[in-house]
Each structure stands twice: as C-alpha cells, then as structure tokens.
Design a protein around this nucleic acid. Structure first.
Lengths: 340, 340
DNA sequence: GTTCCTTTGCAAAACGTTTTGTATGTTGCT
DNA sequence: AGCAACATACAAAACGTTTTGCAAAGGAAC
C-alpha cells in the first residue's frame, strides 16, 4: 500500500510491455493495441490503483499541465477568492492545476516567484491584479504565455480581461432613471483609475440617453472607503435641493452613504435610493435594507483568463484579445421610486 | 532566447561534465568540486540564464517541492485569502510552491482534485476549511502527509490547527469587564460548532474570574448573519434592564447590533459597547464607530500548517500536534466605560 | 509458395536531473 | 622509490513516462 505503483508494475501484472500499457491508457493511441488488451490493461491498472506520475509525463511531453497565477494583495480584498475559483474551475475542467503565488507589493519578490513558477515548467501564467489598472508586466513573463487578469497591459501583445466599467455605470443610471429619479448624484473614487473614469462616463452616458445630465454640483469624489462615502454623502445631502438617488463608486462608499442617511434621519430607499458597485456580499447583503449593486464579474474573469490562456497554448498564433465582461445588476432593496 | 538552457548546455559552455555542474550548484555537494571550478560554473550558469527544471529534479529526487492545499468555499468567505497567503509565504520561504484546489461542497469533485494533486506528486497536503469544524478527511489523503487547517480531524493522527476560540471569548470578557461593564450580554451563533461552544465557554470563564456570570436572559442565539444579530440585539435591548455591553459571535452579527442600536437611538459606544470576533476589515473598519473585535488568526494558521507539514516531511516520526492559535484583540472605537 | 499489407506488440531512446561508483592525478609519508 | 590517502572530475544509471521505429505473426492476393 505504501509504495506507489508505476506503469511498469501495471505492465508486469497485465503481462504486457510498458509500451502497450501506455498506448492502452492513452485514448489517442489506443488504436495501436487490440481492444481486448485495452480492456485488460485498464482493468489491471484500475485494480492496482495506478495513477500516472505527471512529473514524468510532464518531463517527457514538455507540458506540465500546470498554470501559474500571480496576484497582488490576495489578503486585503475579498475578490481574490472568486477570481481564483473561476480560474481553478476552468483549469480543472481541462485537466490542469493551478499554482498560486502572491507577492504583495514587493516587486523583487514577485519576480522571484515568477521564476519559481517557471522552474516548475508552468505552461502559462495569469497575471492578476485586484483592481482594474494599467500594468507593465515583469520582463520574465516574456518567456511564458501570459494573460492579464483584471488589468490591462501596456504591452498589447498580452491578452487581457477587465470588467465593463462603462456598462456598469450605464446600467446604474438606467436603473435609477427608470425608477423615476430625476435628481441624481454620484459619489466617485478620487483615484485616477479606469474604474473611476469608466463608471462615471457610463453613468453620464446612461443619463444622457434620457436627456439628463450630471451637474458638477452632483458629483463628489472621495477616498473609496466607508468614511469617504459617508463624508461625500453628507456633503451631497446637505444642500437644499437634495438628490433622491445616489450612485456610489463601490459598496463600501455606499455603506458610508447609508450611515450618512441614518445620521440625517433619511429612510432608504424611500427618501434616498442607493446603488453601489462590487456586490461585496459581506456588505451589500448586510446593509439594512439590502444594497442593490452592480456585481464585478471576478469569477467570470478568472474563467475567461484560463480559457483564453489554454486556447493560446493550443494555438500560439491565435490573435490576442482584450475582453470586457459585463457587470450584472444584483437587485436588493435600496432602490425605490422617489417620494413625491 | 526561445529555447531553454539545461544543465548539459551549462556543462558544455563551462567545459566540464554535467556531474560537475550539478555538484557545483548543489551547495550540499559543492565540496566535491574545486572552489575555482564552482565559481566558474556558477558564472557560466548565470550567464546563460540557467534555471533547473524542477520537473526533472522532482522526478529524480522523489520530491516535487510542491504542497497542495484543498479548501472549501474560497469564494464566499474573505478568510481564504489570509490563510492562503500565510501558507504561501511559509512555503515560499522554504523553496516550495502551493497548488490550490477548491471544490466547494462537492465531495466527489474534491476527491478528484486530491487525486490530481497526488498525480502531480505533491509532497504533502493541507486540508483547509473555512470555519473551525470537525471533519473526516477523504480517505485518499491517507497516502500523503496531511495537515488539517482551521478544523479538527476525527483522525487524531493528523496534526491540526484552529483558532483559540476559548481564549477569544475570555479576552472579550476581560475587555468589557475592565472597561467597567457589569451588565453584559452575548449574542451567540445558534449552530452546534466549536466556535460557538468555545467562545461562549471562554466568555463565561472570563466573567467568572471577576465573580460575574452570564444569566440565561443575557444570552441569545441566532443565525450568524447581520439580520440574525440585529434581531437578537433588538430582543436583548428591549428588556427593562438593558445591558451596557454586547459580545457578538462575529462581526456580521455585531453589525446587526449596530443597526439595532441605531434603530433604538442608542449611541455606540456610550450607550452600548460592542465586541465582535473575526476582524473582517471590510466590516469592522467600515462600521461607525470602528468595531473592536477579536481577530481570527487565519494568516498565522496558514503559516503554521505549512511549517508543520514541512517538519513532518523532514522527520516523518515527529509527533502529531493540535495547535490553538491565539486571537488577538483589535481595538477600534466600539468599547467605552458604561455611562454613569 | 511467395509477396505484401495489417495488426499487434515490444525495445529503446528521450525528457533533465541527481548520485554512486570509479578513474585519474597529486600530495604526503615512510 | 613506493604506497597510501586525498582531491578532483567524470561516466552511467536511475526516476516514470511517451513515442518512434522495428519485429513477428497472421491474412489476403497473386
């Protein structure tokens, strides 16, 4: 029981050569051996509990069946789990395993980890970030097929996948307008990042389609935390012509808006409707009432990245693509028609 | 540039045999070769950008330098990140890589993933759960050194690590009592799990040490969500003799207690002090005022699991141990002396 | 009865390491 | 000078696969 059974043991037990065993189990080459023999070999292999050593086959085939995923700050954000799960599911469906490595913000460490992955002969690497940004990937990645996940590379020869930030903003506008709101404000992230620009542009476009616009006085930017959202909301809600609906850059800021509303004695959603982005279950579900929010498609992006990587491995000439994945609305109870 | 350089190339370029190269680079065996030669070989290897193929050395050494970690529900909880990070940091410090696999609740899939890990010849496996529980590990794990993480195995021959639930309860009691509270209540998880029992017992012990106790009327159990905490808190705070401090099973329930307090017009911390467990940054930091809470040591548990696994690999006879890691208090602003 | 396929199976080489055992010189000692 | 002891380097085997090329056996066609 203790010692592992290898292909030679199977061959001996089945009374054939290792070649035959290999062919019999190989699916692709099983035509080279008699159907009866195939059955027999399979039975014996199963009996013995044979499992091929993928180190050996990887060595022989120059194909480890391992994908690396390098990410930053897996700890501080709850998004990592979904991305990894999506990647892992896709990998597993195609007989691959995932090696995860996260190096925080230490660049030198990151390169070291990447080299470690390469030593293990990973077939490809997914370079993941925890929020949509422009990155320049470490040069060691030039030696390996690479996909950029939740970021865009300055090197256009790397395929990448990001959330459709613009679409998220658009849908949020659509939701609020169609609920009847005419007096709408937005609390945006003060950072100069694609998510901030994209969501704002989409939101404006969505309003514009209904002949509305976002006056400057209705747009406040802040640090993207609960406290930031709270302060911004207090500012917006203090004015005389109080907005009846708020689109917040993310769920944490939306939570801050809830706090501001509570502080001012405003009822959500009757006095104030709120929409967030992220669909952080921990927050959106916990708020009272539940927060309607645009879900960031981390799971799907993880899947997409692996699928794309595998397809580029299969066919190295495949064109590189840059995908935007839609952010579906998750409706809870924070949006209602304006009081009137 | 495209093609990989192997040990043979280095040997050729350095004008020595592969044996010599191997020994020269091996640290342990470098005494078998002239110091000058070692330098020369190293220089040539570096020049050529040589990186050893760990598939090959794993095959030869019967040691892949890969650890597997199988977990459940990495998606739905934000704890996974910290555990994986801890495990990965420790692994990386010792020249190992981590293969992550998560199978949700699908048992059959889980076994399949474990077999996949075994085919890749992982040196050991960490069987992780997302909350402290009693598990019986899949039988395929008997073939591989295994550590149980954030759970206890029914098989005592498997080392395991869990949070010190009892200590967390105790510290919470200590904190509230020493702030001057005498009228304290607890909202516990209704589930029959070690965390619920441990935290309650520890809390009682902590009160007991100061000659206090937790009357039955001051203990409410509920579903461990924000809504559950909210309902429970409303119930506790409705009574005439209102408690001045609340110990909540976790941060989500604590958030519910905040909502209840807000609803009743109670000020935190002046009218009501609250302590949680988990230190979910996303919640504890976002609440207003910040929530003081006992941190669950996921990062440390992940580290411990890998370190222990490596030590058992090094020395297979090492005694199995069952570790409890302390839950440090993270102070924010939700605890104050009782009014008056 | 010879030739020529086809089917079925096997031996051997290769993937890139590590390690054991051995060969060659070199030094030190008597 | 002779011999042991040592320092240094190498050849070869092994880890467990996969695949190429070849051999043997069995039929079919002439």
């Amino acid at each position: 029981m203790a010692t592992k059974v290898n292909i030679r043991d199977v061959a001996k037990a089945a009374g054939v050569s290792v070649t035959t065993v290999s062919h019999a189990l190989s699916e692709a080459h099983s035509s080279r051996v008699n159907a009866r023999t195939v059955e027999h070999v399979k039975a014996v292999a199963c009996d013995l509990g044979y499992a091929p050593n993928r180190l050996a086959s990887g060595l022989r085939n120059q194909r480890s069946q391992i994908l690396g995923i390098v990410s930053d700050e897996i700890t501080t954000t709850p998004f990592a789990g979904a991305m990894i799960q999506g990647a892992q599911d896709a990998a597993s469906e195609h007989g691959h395993l995932l090696m995860v490595v996260n190096s925080g913000l230490d660049n030198e460490l990151e390169r070291q980890e990447i080299r470690a992955l390469q030593q293990h002969q990973v077939d490809g690497i997914i370079y993941a970030r925890m929020f949509n940004q422009l990155v320049s990937v470490p040069e060691e990645l030039q030696a390996v097929p690479t996909i950029v996940l939740d970021a865009t590379s300055d090197n256009p020869r790397l395929s990448s996948v990001v959330p459709d930030e613009f679409g998220a903003g658009e849908s949020a506008a659509e939701l609020l307008v169609s609920a009847g709101h005419r007096n709408i404000a937005m609390i945006n992230n003060e950072d100069d990042i694609p998510a901030a620009h994209g969501r704002l542009a989409g939101f404006q476009a969505g309003l514009d389609r209904h002949g509305m616009q976002l006056p400057e006085s209705r747009l406040v930017v802040a640090y993207p935390s609960t406290a930031g959202g709270r302060e911004a909301a207090l500012e917006l809600l203090a004015g005389s012509e109080r907005p009846t609906a708020l689109f917040c850059f993310n769920d944490q800021m939306a939570m801050g808006a809830y706090q501001a509303a509570g502080h001012l004695g405003l009822n959500i959603p009757d006095d104030l409707s709120i929409v967030g982005v992220d669909n952080l279950e921990l927050i959106a579900d916990a708020l009272w009432p539940g927060l309607s929010t645009m879900a960031l498609p981390h799971y799907e992006m993880g899947r997409w990245a692996v699928l794309k990587l595998l397809s580029e491995l299969e066919n190295p000439g495949a064109p590189r693509t840059h995908e935007k994945i839609p952010c579906p609305l998750v409706e809870r109870d924070s949006v209602a028609p304006p009081r009137n």
